[in-house]
């Protein structure tokens, strides 16, 4: 029973940590679906949103603004920062790069990553800033069934709830609103969408804005867990294997992929890591993605890739 209890504990911890990867992966999927751009900068956007949020919170709290008002204003400020970023990216980089190859666009987003990392840290500072929006202590559940109960981190549960709400919100936005329908049309076929009168530059701005807001949400959870700091960028890179596993074009895929990666790497670390040196969390997700690529290149939920000459 102890063994099973430990396994379930690791599994739950992993699944909920996977939700964090899903949050970043969601931003990737949104942009990829709508504009075909593989957005390497999503991690940097999480960092920027987190920095904007935590620094404005500190600024307001130091001036005696009540906590709830500071949080609302801070979130607003960070959202505005992300909106400006989205507008600038769309206007200055992606607009002029329309019709370039996927590779060029991907490289451009690496360039954007560097600019965002540099600018974010120059404006908002480059230390580790603690963020405490959510409780971080733990619950012990199922005391009767397992000895000592199962340890579940409250923050992880919050992360799960937020991710669920976010996906529901996005689903409604995509299915029920006019802009959402336009977004899906653009994702389907740029040229056809433009020919029926959908303003494509506006749509791309909206997509980057939504991805920026998703990054903000991810930043609140990640920031609470780790503090807002530069290494978030590297952790966010784990969203790439998540996407490979789930499929680049699927929102449910991002969620399921995140859960698989989160649970898989925790279980591997606990049960396999000790034998081969530890720290295998560092690469487990990537090698898992590599294995998935060999078997099913489009991922679990991705659209089948069909090529024509």
């Amino acid at each position: 029973m102890v063994v099973l209890g430990q396994f379930i504990e690791v599994l739950i911890g992993g699944l909920l940590a996977g939700v964090l990867y899903s949050l970043v992966a969601l931003g990737f999927v949104l942009i990829f679906k709508a504009s075909g751009v593989f957005n390497f900068a999503q991690g940097a956007m999480v960092l920027l949103a987190g920095l904007a949020l935590v620094r404005s919170l500190d600024f307001l709290a130091a001036r005696g603004v009540p906590m709830w008002a500071a949080i609302v204003l801070g979130l607003l400020f960070a959202a505005v920062v992300m909106a400006i970023t989205a507008a600038l990216i769309q206007k200055l980089v992606l607009g002029p790069l329309v019709n370039q190859s996927d590779l060029s666009l991907f490289m451009a987003t690496i360039g954007i990553t560097f600019v965002l990392e540099g600018a974010g840290q120059m404006i908002f500072g480059s230390d580790v800033y603690p963020l405490s929006l959510f409780p971080t202590d733990a619950w012990f559940v199922l005391d009767g069934l397992f000895e000592g109960g199962l340890l579940v981190n409250k923050l992880d549960v919050w992360g799960g709830l937020i991710a669920g709400a976010l996906v529901a919100g996005l689903a409604i936005f995509f299915q029920r609103t006019k802009t959402g329908r336009a977004l899906r049309a653009v994702a389907d076929d740029h040229a056809a969408a433009e020919s029926v009168g959908i303003p494509i530059t506006w749509i791309w701005f909206v997509v980057w804005l939504v991805a920026g807001l998703v990054a903000l949400v991810a930043a609140t959870v990640w920031g609470t867990k780790l503090g807002v700091q530069f290494s978030i960028v590297f952790l966010a890179l784990k969203a790439l294997p998540v996407l490979i596993i789930g499929g680049f074009t699927s929102v449910p895929g991002a969620i399921v992929g995140g859960l698989i990666v989160g649970a898989g790497e925790k279980i591997a670390e606990v049960y396999l890591g000790q034998q081969i040196g530890g720290g295998i969390e560092y690469w487990f997700a990537y090698v898992l993605a590599l294995a998935v690529l060999l078997v099913r290149p489009q991922g679990l939920f991705g659209e089948r890739i069909i090529e024509r000459i």
């Binding site: 690496i110 360039g111 954007i112 990553t113 560097f114 600019v115 990392e117 540099g118 600018a119 120059m122």
Partner: peptide, 12 residues
């Protein structure tokens, strides 16, 4: 940080 910004901007 400036190196980051300038490199990124130049790439774009």
């Amino acid at each position: 940080h400036l190196v980051f910004i300038v490199t990124g901007a130049l790439i774009c």
